[in-house]
Write a protein that binds this DNA or RNA. Sequence first.
DNA 1: TATTATTACGTTAGGCGTAAAGATT
DNA 2: AATCTTTACGCCTAACGTAATAATA
Lengths: 280, 280
Amino acid sequence: MLNLLELEQLAAFADWGTLSKAAEQLHISQPTITRTMQHLEEEFGVPLFSRSKNKIQLNETGKKAVEYAKSLLEDAKEAVAQVQAFHKRLHTITVQSCAPAPLWSLLPILSSEFPQQTISSTLLEEPEIVRQVRDGDCEMGILPRPVEQEGVKCVPFLEEKLSVCVPYEHSLAERTSLTFQELNGFNCLLLSQIGFWDKLCREKMPASRFLVQTDSFEFAELVRHSSLLCFTTNLARDSQELFHKRNIIPLTDAQANVTYYLLFTNSVYQAVAEKCSNRH
Amino acid sequence: MLNLLELEQLAAFADWGTLSKAAEQLHISQPTITRTMQHLEEEFGVPLFSRSKNKIQLNETGKKAVEYAKSLLEDAKEAVAQVQAFHKRLHTITVQSCAPAPLWSLLPILSSEFPQQTISSTLLEEPEIVRQVRDGDCEMGILPRPVEQEGVKCVPFLEEKLSVCVPYEHSLAERTSLTFQELNGFNCLLLSQIGFWDKLCREKMPASRFLVQTDSFEFAELVRHSSLLCFTTNLARDSQELFHKRNIIPLTDAQANVTYYLLFTNSVYQAVAEKCSNRH
DNA sequence: TATTATTACGTTAGGCGTAAAGATT
DNA sequence: AATCTTTACGCCTAACGTAATAATA
């Protein structure tokens, strides 16, 4: 039977032209590779090389053998990768969400329900989330609206309501409610990694500029020492910084008050989804 | 790197259900296969089995690994076969002919021109011959007519003229020439393995019956002791049997007097083809 | 009790590297 | 001289089988 280690030497010889170079590249001795080539000819049962006294080269048959050898080596490598990927997949629950807040509730639940599994989550745009859930590329998805899709189950999860944090001295500070339209034109501080909220704000407040902060401490510092608007929600885990000398004013737009829905195909997650919705 | 021998043990385990059975089938000891399975798990880097005290079985990942293992084993076997076939092909000149007579001239020439090569010949029907030459499935073809085909060279080779052997007492015995039409209705003795001649006779003499003989000695015996018609050509290597108390009368039909053409794609055979046509 | 997987252990065969030879440029 | 392939030789690892262990049906 063929031996992949030997085929690798054959491929190396084909790539480097001489047994010496190939041996050097593979960190083995020259006699070893000579022996291997002889052994390969036995295995294939046909001559693969044309030999003169101190020169050896592939004949036509040998070149064909090299083709197959490289293909087999590639396939073998691919097989290992695929099996590893399959294993990883089997022990990973991947959640694709449109926003971070619902993950804060869901991930701990998944961790306790599936203590053996690794939980992996990413923020994605809505269409991509739907596609991944449908194609089985992830186990769960979280959207800010329900979807009707063949084979995809969709369960309401929890609500998030957006509010704006207005400094006391701001002209809007005394309002009890606001709309995107009224905020449009005022510049805002924003955190990165907030999923669809970012896109929503830019869409609804095209005249505003958004100063996106990656670091939450820097963000908090800026909030404290600036008079720029910023946002929070009922689910936010902010420290007191946001409330420091600011009024929290709810937005009344429908799109600022979303209900998250859990998407999944495998009914294993039905129970979790129901448990989640009951909690809220 | 994966080892195909180990993968074979994995496949055997999958097929036979227990390590013991697999070991027995492969004529190896049980400890060996146990170790191999452990080693395979290291190679793949993930668990492939679920083990209880005296039971071991494939887990989901393991089943995937078996799929890939079997595929790789199949590919490896196929690779060896393909390389061997390639080698054989490289050292074999295959000639597909519509009739045996031109082979009697061509094969000796090929043998002396290519003493290293094995010469292989078969009788086929015309369309298949053209296909094989075109597709490179054979090196040369012999047809009873020229063909125009992209990339296929076509050189006139030699002529064969059909005659009928009529017993002295036969009503047609005194004719100096004949046609298929005149022969139609008379029953004939025929040898097998005469290529397109068989089909031609049946087509041109639909009212006749043909008694096909496989053995040439039996054929000669029948010719000698019957008054049935039979055929010969200018190229035939018949003994005197056919002429025993028979007149040899040529057929005048165009299709009974053919010119054979050599077909080939590889110009290596151009020289041979020219040498052939010069000889005749 | 028979079957199965695994561990322990001693042996051996096969594979590797070093050294050397032969040949070519 | 330098480079390359091949042969010869000795060592050593790694793989195998036997025997023993443990557990199950």
